[in-house]
């Protein structure tokens, strides 16, 4: 569904991604693993065109999206959930959802505010609270809910388990499993291997912007030496 081929991305003069390739099949959850600074966030941003890769190709559902505008990428059905949450803190929960709202899309679930409140019951009672009044976990849920309002067929999830309570991490894992069962495709960046274990089908590991492992979760589990070499304990 998504093919990334040999992209190179820079921050200023820093070469962050080096000939990175990866592929995400439809209705799979792919976990992008790697240490802090390995280039996970940059990979997701490059797909979203928030960072422009200088070379390489990115195709989504057979269409090239490299060089496109982020809003056009989003319109194709790619949803982006940023790492730092980036909710609109001065807007209420309902208003945050309204910003993400997009017309229904064929082949994807059409989300409504109520459906999202069923998925994230904590948000329902916070409907009219401003973003800045929410807890970290609630903010993380709101970021995901806001992206789902765009009825994406594919979601880029940047470290959803980072900095939230274990109880929320578990809830997040359940949500991702549910989304997957509804046919959503997910590319998830993670440092938390346990979280990835709970949701992922396939695993890609990167180190210094280079792909060092690509395979199923089961294979990775049978090669602990890879895990030890490239992932934090």
């Amino acid at each position: 569904m998504l093919e990334v081929e040999r992209i190179n991305s820079f921050y200023g003069k820093a070469h962050v991604l080096r000939d990175l390739s990866l592929s995400v099949p439809k209705s799979n959850v792919v976990a992008l693993l790697g240490r802090n600074g390995a280039g996970k966030t940059t990979t997701l941003k490059s797909i979203m065109q928030l960072v422009r890769p200088t070379t390489g190709s990115i195709t989504f559902q057979g269409r090239s999206i490299a060089g496109s505008q982020p809003h056009k990428v989003a319109k194709l059905g790619l949803g982006y959930v940023p790492e730092e949450r980036r909710i609109f803190t001065d807007l209420t929960v309902a208003e945050n959802l309204l910003v993400g709202k997009q017309p229904p899309r064929e082949g994807a679930v059409t989300w409504s505010e109520d459906m999202l409140f069923d998925l994230f019951p904590n948000l329902a009672e916070r409907r009219n609270n401003r973003g800045k009044a929410l807890s970290g976990g609630e903010q993380q849920m709101l970021t995901i809910a806001r992206t789902l309002m765009g009825n994406p067929s594919f979601v880029l999830l940047d470290e959803p388990s980072e900095g939230v309570a274990p109880v929320i991490v578990e809830q997040m894992a359940r949500v991702i499993q549910q989304l997957k069962s509804e046919g959503l495709t997910v590319l998830l960046s993670e440092q938390n291997l346990h979280f990835a274990q709970a949701v992922a089908d396939l695993v890609v590991i990167i180190e210094s912007g280079v792909q060092v492992y690509n395979g199923t979760l089961a294979e990775l589990n049978s090669h602990p030496e890879i895990r030890d070499a490239y992932l934090a304990a």
């Binding site: 989003a74 910003v99 765009g150």
Partner: peptide, 8 residues
């Protein structure tokens, strides 16, 4: 930037 990433 985030608004753009949400499709606006």
């Amino acid at each position: 930037e985030m608004v753009g990433a949400l499709g606006v």
